[in-house]
């Protein structure tokens, strides 16, 4: 099935994609000192993939970002999150207890675990949003095909 947008849309989307990814990581990494955070950044990450999907068509995008890879990424995001929580217990603190240096207020490498946790939440949410979108689009394509 062919579904390709016009050249303008595809070009703009292709140029926009890296910027969106950068913005997503900005939101994730600055989550603990400014508005943003893992979930928000993850949603932007997912929507950047959605933009690519809508402009380039399903085949090319699903070849580059495979469904199974995204599923693995999603599971790894959660597992690492819980793993960091357990690391806190192993190092003699409570679950999710902070074991990293706290750093200076306002700097990016500060607030101990929060930055790391945000990163993994971002991974999980980004992969999750894309997976949901894939599933919905598959449903849509099947409905159209019938």
């Amino acid at each position: 099935m062919r579904r390709q947008e016009t050249k303008i849309v595809r070009n703009v989307a292709r140029k926009l994609f890296p910027v969106l990814v950068l913005f997503a990581f900005y939101l994730i990494i600055y989550g603990h000192i400014s508005p943003g955070g893992g979930f928000q950044g993850g949603v932007v990450l997912g929507s950047s993939l959605i933009l690519l999907y809508l402009s380039e068509g399903p085949e090319r995008v699903e070849k580059k970002f495979k469904n199974s890879q995204l599923a693995i990424l999603e599971a790894i995001g959660v597992l690492t999150f819980v793993g960091i929580g357990f690391l806190g217990i192993i190092l003699g603190k409570h679950f999710l207890g902070n074991f990293l240096p706290i750093g200076r207020v306002g700097m990016v490498p500060s607030a101990g675990l929060v930055l790391l946790l945000n990163l993994f939440i971002g991974t999980k949410v980004g992969a999750g949003i894309s997976l949901i979108f894939y599933a919905l689009m598959k449903f849509d394509r099947r409905a159209q095909g019938e």
């Binding site: 599923a71 693995i72 599971a75 357990f86």
Partner: peptide
């Protein structure tokens, strides 16, 4: 002392491990 959180977090951890395993 860690039992309460382990009771909640262990199944959660395994849940995602299983969803990873089900792909293999």
């Amino acid at each position: 002392s860690n039992f309460p959180i382990l009771i909640v977090a262990l199944p959660l951890c395994f849940a995602f491990f299983i969803s990873l395993l089900s792909l293999t």
